[in-house]
Every structure is written in structure tokens, then in C-alpha cells.
């Protein structure tokens, strides 16, 4: 690892002002991506600003939505009775991320700020049409997720919490890579009174995306057999050593069927 400095910020405004003075500072949430990245020398920030003392935890019921503090760890979300009751699909998603040790450290805010194209949480944000709250503003999911590993966040902007509207039904099903546990394909299906939203992670060349033709098919009939072969195109899907674009297209259909069935 390259040499770097480490500081712990005690609140979000201090963290933002500290990073403004750094040449190439990075915020540290759970560190489950950042620290392995530093170990591989794929990044060389001159300053690491730990957000763990910024009091960004806590999960609240806001009536029509729930709000999850950005530094809530995957284990906190998975075990939250509030989340399990309000949007069980999110608790279930969190319980499938990485392994137990990753879930004991990794955070929802860190995952969303990183926007890894194979991460699970971006599909919940987009699938539910959630809102990112930073110290400066609120950002809708569609505006926040701007591409693979890219978000609308400014350099000194910190996610403080995320709101997720409560759907009538929702489910997340992923086909994990057997080695990394990242989603080779993950599908988040959410049924609201005004329509169905379907977000796909692990497959898109530009990161998580909404599958509009699947949404249209499920709007017409919310049944697993609405997802017919050929509905999902391999265009703009990733092709790598783990899976071809065509195989991913097939998996999107299958994971969607399973998610619709899981919705009950």
C-alpha cells in the first residue's frame, strides 16, 4: 500500500472541510472496497477521512418510506426489525452481500457511493426509486446513479442517509458469482400502486439499469410467466470471463421470474 494519512472526522461538515484541503482525499466508510483497493495499489489517496464517528447510523420509519443512515452496516440493515417489516426485500438483500465479515463492516452509504456495477444495493435504490440525502441536498436515484462506479456526488459531498419508498411488494434475487459473491446478475422487482419497477445489477455495461420492457410486461400481468424468452436483449450487457452477455440476458429473465414468485 502507498503511504497515506488517516484522520477520523467527528461530523460531516468537518469531514467535508478536511477533504477540501487534501490533494486527493478519500472518505472511508466500511472500507470493504476501499481498503482492498489500496492494498492492490489501485488508488493512492494522500488522505483517508474515516466517517465512522460522524453519527450517520440509525434507521427510521417515515410513514410512506424508511430512511437508513449511511453508515448502517449490512448486518444492521439485515437484522433491523423495522426494515424486515417495512421492506423485507432490503433486509434480505443486505443479508446476501459478501460474507459475514464483510457484512459486519460494509455500509449502505459506502456501497452506494461506490456504485460498483455488480453491487447489490444500487438495484434497491433504483428499483424502489429511493432518494439519496447528502449534507447539501437530496438526489433522486435516477439522477444519482450516473454510470459504472460513477455518481452525482461532488468531491466533498457525503451521503448521510437514504430514503426508500415502501412498495406493495418487492423482492431481490441474485445469481452470485461463486467466488466473489458479487451479483453476476441481481434483479430487484418492486410493485407500487402506480406500476412495477425492475432494476438490474451486475449485468449492465453502464452499471445498474431499469429494464423497461420487463416493467411493461409485469405492468400488464404481474406473473413469472410474463417474462418470456427473448424479452431481455443482450445489447449493452457486460461480457467477461464470468458470463457472456447472452448468458446474463438469460439470467436477468430467470432472476426476474424468481423475484416475482418471491413477491408472493
Amino acid at each position: 500500500m502507498y503511504s497515506t494519512k488517516y484522520v477520523k472526522a467527528t461530523n460531516v461538515n468537518k469531514a467535508a472541510s478536511i477533504i477540501a484541503d487534501a490533494e486527493d482525499g478519500k472518505f472511508l466508510a466500511g472500507g470493504m472496497t476501499l481498503i482492498p483497493t489500496l492494498k492492490q495499489r489501485l488508488a493512492s489517496p494522500d488522505l483517508i477521512i474515516d466517517l465512522s464517528d460522524c453519527k450517520l447510523t440509525g434507521i427510521e420509519d417515515e410513514g410512506a418510506s424508511i430512511r437508513i443512515g449511511a453508515m448502517s452496516r449490512h448486518i444492521d440493515v439485515a437484522e433491523s426489525v423495522l426494515v424486515q417489516n417495512a421492506i423485507p426485500a432490503i433486509a434480505n438483500l443486505a443479508s446476501q452481500i459478501g460474507d459475514r465479515q464483510v457484512r459486519n463492516r460494509g455500509t449502505i452509504g459506502g456501497s452506494l457511493a461506490n456504485n460498483d456495477p455488480a453491487a447489490c444495493y444500487p438495484s434497491a435504490l433504483l428499483g424502489l426509486g429511493g432518494t439519496i440525502h447528502t449534507q447539501n441536498r437530496s438526489i433522486l436515484a435516477e439522477d444519482f446513479l450516473t454510470g459504472m462506479f460513477e455518481t452525482d456526488l461532488e468531491e466533498d459531498e457525503i451521503i448521510i442517509g437514504i430514503s426508500f419508498p415502501k412498495p406493495d411488494k418487492a423482492a431481490y434475487v441474485k445469481f452470485p458469482n461463486p467466488a466473489s459473491r458479487y451479483a453476476m446478475v441481481g434483479v430487484f422487482v418492486a410493485k407500487f400502486s402506480d406500476g412495477v419497477r425492475v432494476a438490474v445489477t451486475g449485468a449492465g455495461e453502464d452499471g445498474v439499469f431499469r429494464a423497461s420492457n420487463i416493467e411493461a410486461a409485469l405492468d400488464e400481468s404481474f406473473k413469472a410467466n410474463s417474462i418470456i424468452d427473448g424479452l431481455v436483449s443482450a445489447d449493452n450487457l457486460m461480457s467477461d470471463i464470468h458470463a457472456s452477455a447472452e448468458y446474463r440476458a438469460h439470467l436477468i429473465g430467470e432472476m426476474t421470474r424468481r423475484a416475482v414468485i418471491a413477491c408472493g
Binding site: K8, P36, K39, D50, S52, I75, R100, Q101, N104, R105
Partner: peptide, 19 residues
């Protein structure tokens, strides 16, 4: 490298000592 940090299992290779 798993150890317990405040009773929870963590990978000590993915954590700064300072944390």
C-alpha cells in the same frame, strides 16, 4: 486473518489499525 473486534468477526487485513 479473521479476529473479533468488539465481539464481531472482521477481516483484520481490511481494516486500518487506527480504525
Amino acid at each position: 486473518c479473521i479476529v473479533h473486534l468488539n465481539g464481531e468477526s472482521v477481516k483484520s487485513c481490511s481494516l486500518f489499525a487506527a480504525q
